[in-house]
Nucleic acid binder design. Structure first.
Ligand code: SF4
Ligand code: SF4
Lengths: 150, 150
DNA sequence: GGTAAATAAGATAATTAATGTCTTATTTAT
DNA sequence: ATAAATAAGACATTAATTATCTTATTTACC
């Protein structure tokens, strides 16, 4: 009942790209460094994000990735589900036929509610919101000035 | 991001016991048959439930399990977390020190909210509620009379 | 007390999923 | 044409889940 590493990395990558703005090409290396993602792992993650039409991958020298949709149009849920698949919480929510009781089971209904709630919460927040606040990216060198001790 | 098999079986077992009432001894075999749980697997699951003080295990002939607390006093969340551990959704919620950003990360806050909501939903429903409605246990032989086709 | 019925406890095996790495191929700026 | 950058997917490692199997313990009953 946990987000996978790949899921977390995908979110970081997407938030970083959103932070830079839609359509702005960023090198893979920069993303890896700033968002602390193993380089080879990101390559695989990016493939899935590209397949899902969330980013465009540009090869060649000066290559990299950029965000395809507007940051407002992508939710945290979308990014997460691209990586780990649709969230179901319990098997019988995914495939009701896997348990003959699913139609009458009160436990099933609780899982269904919990699942909808969870997806709604993750679906309600866009990359735009996440990127405008501080998140996922270590404090930018430039913005370290006054001590952050409070 | 899914309940494990063991978690699902534990819930079934607990709902079945709750259905029978607190303190009522039921043989392991009966539970396995009625709740459709592999017998040897239940043995291991029961050990954890007993360690968590949710059931008492009685050995010997006429042995079996029974519910220790009142059904109203046990939530679905409790049963699930005994089996799969406390729900955190993302690693940084479990151990904020695992990501240096957790204090300022807006994504972190979304996960935190989602997690609290999920635990609240699962925590709000007791075994008593679940057991009084039809759930987890295939329709009882006695109650099969009119065809269940509707 | 002895016996057999029932489960305990934990070791072990099989399966599946997650994570990470490596190699070869392709794209593209210069 | 060349070299820089990533693509694509195969491969290896690790960890978690699921299941089973063996030996030990408990206890009702005679
Ligand atoms: S018993 Fe209920 S909760 Fe469990 S798998 Fe079946 S429908 Fe789902
Ligand atoms: S970047 Fe944010 S969400 Fe991701 S691990 Fe760090 S604190 Fe958590």
């Amino acid at each position: 009942m946990r987000l996978t590493r790949a899921g977390e990395y995908a979110v970081r990558c997407m938030v970083y790209l959103a932070h830079k703005g839609q359509g702005v090409l960023i090198s893979k290396q920069e993303i890896c460094e700033r968002a602390d993602i193993p380089s080879h792992f990101l390559a695989k993650i990016a493939q899935e994000l590209a397949k899902a039409q969330l980013i465009i991958i540009r090869q060649g020298p000066k290559g990299g990735y950029y965000l395809l949709p507007q940051p407002e149009d992508v939710s945290l849920l979308q990014v997460v589900e691209v990586m780990i698949g649709e969230i179901f919480l319990n098997d019988c929510i995914d495939r009701p036929q896997s348990c003959t009781l699913s139609k009458s089971c009160s436990v099933h209904r609780v899982w269904d509610k919990a699942r909808n709630q969870l997806r709604e919460t993750l679906g309600a927040v866009s990359l735009a919101e996440l990127a405008e606040k501080e998140s996922c990216i270590p404090v930018f060198p430039a913005s370290i000035s006054s001590s952050s001790q409070e």
